[in-house]
Design a protein around this nucleic acid. Structure first.
Lengths: 334, 334
DNA sequence: CGAAATTACGACTGGCGTAAGTATC
DNA sequence: GATACTTACGCCAGTCGTAATTTCG
């Protein structure tokens, strides 16, 4: 038994169904374009899913939907690496251009809504971070020329103090304390693995992974920062009572040189050293059986976090990072 | 009581909710852009809804969704005609460019899928139809330069015979017989009102609408086609036993001249005469209290209807017509 | 009052998740 | 067997429709 209202509903549904097919009001949505972009940039369904905070299954569904609609495959199966078909490539080109235009329009709208300019003073406590921060800031500056963009220089023991004292609008930190204090908000940027670095010729290079004890009689080469800020020490070594000698260097290459010449071993974000591992003088090793992982957060005032340019800055940092650094892990919000 | 599976589900939903807000994976979809385009082109929510085969309510919902998302109004309320806000205009520009690019990509994909060219021989039985057919064919030719596009000239008593005899691939007709015969398919183009045309000075010009009897002692001025093809006669006059004298002219202007000089009265598609009504010598009047309405269909072979270029041709015709002719009525498919 | 828009409410369904299956290296 | 993708199945959130209400000319 179907009510009259329901009858109308069914008629309408049927009609809509027909109209979508017969009248060709394309079923393609921006969702699909986002997916395709992520798919190409991350190389397979699972990683694309991670980036979009969806499951592999959802991506598969979306791909299938496009393929059914156009009647062609979007990417070739059973190939490594992933290869798009001609159709897939065309759609990917579309995604690139369209999504860029959408982003631009949304920035324009944000300007219309927020009216006037603002400023963004960025502080980082982490040496290697400049690798992604600089290109991200460059892109941001292009998009928001009217925002005064600054880098707070110098090293600071307590970077959050910079926020409190209104000497910075955004600071990048690696430790995640909870929200709340002074209306401060944490924005997850990305997660990454911290790997041990040893010379190819070092006896430890043969191991499957490094244990805290392996560090006992070694010299640990790091950036010149207090040991509380080094996750290897704070999380991996200290809890097991291991306190190796330390030696510091300012630059990543310098640290790697020291490791290569067997003056010590190190531990760094995997993305910071990926390029150097290829050359073969040093080797990366997992820290502990399960690995040691670090995370990066941007901290801002709650109010500042609401502006569109701040959100765009965060998005830009994530996009640049995921697109240029290998092995990053998306973090869930909050 | 919530199952474990459900718990996961809830967690995921929450997560998705958060991520959509915090990670700014824009909620804008092509749906909204289609809606905005239709909204601007048709001038108000109701007509936009008609075009998209949705209800006024759905359009209102969509607008509200955008407005909530960006925190600005998209169009100013309580103004006649409809006026977009700055945000609305920016989004409309976005819609224009993006949708054009999507359409182009879809044509490219169709070419990839279908591989090779085809041809499209168009036949029309209706004089006035050239008004929209020509611009539509021009646009189509730009998009599908490799398709051989032809116009089948001459008048034909039974236009469907052209299809059967393979002398045309698409014919435009005003009568809608059911599918089936010879695997032929009817594609609705648009509906329109047929209005009576009388001189401003004619006594009938005072009436609210014309009745069949009003035509009894008048001369009916029409295009030179058999009377079965004239809806005024077939549907409006003949059933009431009214058979006025007839006089014919080839061109719309010529017919209107005759009417203006009170040599007779006429009946034509409202869109064909809209421009001339403004000038004031002739007047349009509804035919019957409820009005007389005509419809136009394109007829093709079922097979040919499946090709993308054919579908695109139909879409182009509809788009051109709705964008240039006043007072058209969307028809439901099938 | 009619035409246009908003809104409360509810129906459906399509998009996505879980989990199990298939396939490839 | 690990990794990559597909698929069956089910849930619900979001989208749309109906209808009542408001608003304006």
């Amino acid at each position: 038994m179907v009510s009259s209202a329901n009858l109308h509903y069914y008629a309408n549904s049927l009609f809509k169904y027909l109209s979508l097919n017969l009248f060709m009001i394309s079923m393609l949505e921006l969702r699909h374009l986002h997916m395709l972009k992520a798919l190409v940039e991350s190389g397979n369904l699972s990683r694309a899913a991670q980036r979009l905070h969806l499951t592999q299954s959802a991506i598969s569904h979306q791909v299938k939907q496009i393929e059914d609609h156009y009647g062609v495959l979007v990417f070739e199966r059973k190939t490594q690496p992933l290869r798009l078909t001609a159709t897939g490539q065309r759609l990917h080109v579309l995604a690139e251009t369209v999504l860029a235009q959408v982003a631009e329009a949304e920035r324009d709208i944000a300007r219309i809504v927020e009216g006037q300019a603002g400023r963004l003073r960025v502080a980082v406590e982490c040496h290697t971070c400049f690798e992604w921060l600089m290109p991200a800031m460059d892109i941001f500056r292009e998009h928001w020329s009217e925002i005064e963009l600054d880098l707070v220089s110098g090293f600071h023991a307590d970077p959050l103090a910079l926020l409190r004292e209104d000497r910075a609008d955004l600071v990048v930190v690696s430790e995640h304390r909870k929200h709340g204090a002074n209306g401060v908000v944490y924005h997850p940027l990305f997660g990454f693995e911290i790997i041990g670095i040893v010379s190819r010729l070092h006896r430890l290079a043969q191991k499957e992974y490094l244990t805290p004890q392996d560090f006992t009689d070694e010299t640990l080469v790091t950036y010149p920062v207090p040991e509380e800020m080094l996750d290897v020490i704070r999380i991996f070594l200290k809890p097991h009572g291991v306190e190796p000698k330390r030696r510091t260097a300012e630059l990543t290459v310098a640290i790697l040189q020291l490791v290569a010449s067997r003056r010590g071993i190190s531990a760094m974000p995997s993305w910071a050293v990926q390029g150097y591992l290829r050359t073969g003088y040093v080797q990366g090793l997992r820290l502990g059986k399960e690995g040691l992982f670090g995370e990066l957060y941007a901290v801002t005032h709650g109010e500042a976090a609401k502006t569109a340019y701040m959100q765009d800055f965060l998005e830009t940092v994530r996009a640049v990072s995921f697109n240029t650094l290998p092995g990053l892990i998306p973090l869930s919000p909050a």
